[in-house]
Each structure stands twice: as C-alpha cells, then as structure tokens.
C-alpha cells in the first residue's frame, strides 16, 4: 500500500477541523490559542504533502514562513492573555467583552 498525498490531506483536514472546533468551543484563551496552533500544523502538513507530491521545495519554504507567523501569533496571543489577566483577572474569552455595547 502506498501512502499518497490524499492520505496526508485527509489527516491534515481532520487535525484542522479539530483545531477549528477547539477554537470555537474552548472557553479558555490559552487552549483557544493551542487549537489555533493545531490548525497551523494542519496547514503545514498540507504544504509538505503537496511539496512532496509535486516535487517542489517551495512548499517547504512556505511552511517555514507559516511556522514563523505562528511563532509571532503565539507571542502576541500570550501577550494578550497576560494583558487580559491583568485587566479582568480572567482567561475566559467570553469575558473579554469591553467592545460589547
């Protein structure tokens, strides 16, 4: 049995959707960010699968950029968490509602 790009795509899809559901249902800001990381990883998996399938290194380079952006996102997101805790003493996303009118 040969493992094709399709296998990787389906795996990537499963992880992506799990991350998506996690983003939507978790109350805790930290776990929401973790779910986001899952989604990033799914994207990377996708890129790598296509890079291999199409025999093109550009996919790997793109994945590196994705990792960089994910790192930036994590830094900003965690900074936000610290700010939120300082401001409202909570990590619950649904309590970060200053914009609510």
């Amino acid at each position: 049995m040969i493992i094709t790009a399709t296998h990787y795509l389906v795996l990537s899809l499963i992880i992506f959707c799990l991350g998506l559901v996690g983003v939507m249902v978790r109350r805790n800001f930290i776990t929401v960010l973790m779910s986001l990381e899952l989604m990033f990883n799914a994207v990377n998996l996708n890129l790598i699968a296509f890079s291999y399938r199409l025999d093109d290194l550009a996919g790997q380079v793109l994945a590196i950029f994705v990792i960089t952006v994910a790192a930036a996102e994590a830094a900003i997101g965690l900074g936000l968490i610290i700010a939120l805790v300082r401001l409202k003493d909570t990590v619950s996303l649904d309590e970060a509602d200053v914009m609510r009118s």
Partner: peptide, 10 residues
C-alpha cells in the same frame, strides 16, 4: 452579540 469572539468564528 458584539464582543463574543467565538460566535464570530462560528
């Protein structure tokens, strides 16, 4: 309503 991030995501 406004301010509920995950609602937007959904």
């Amino acid at each position: 309503q406004v301010g509920f991030t995950q609602g937007y995501a959904m």
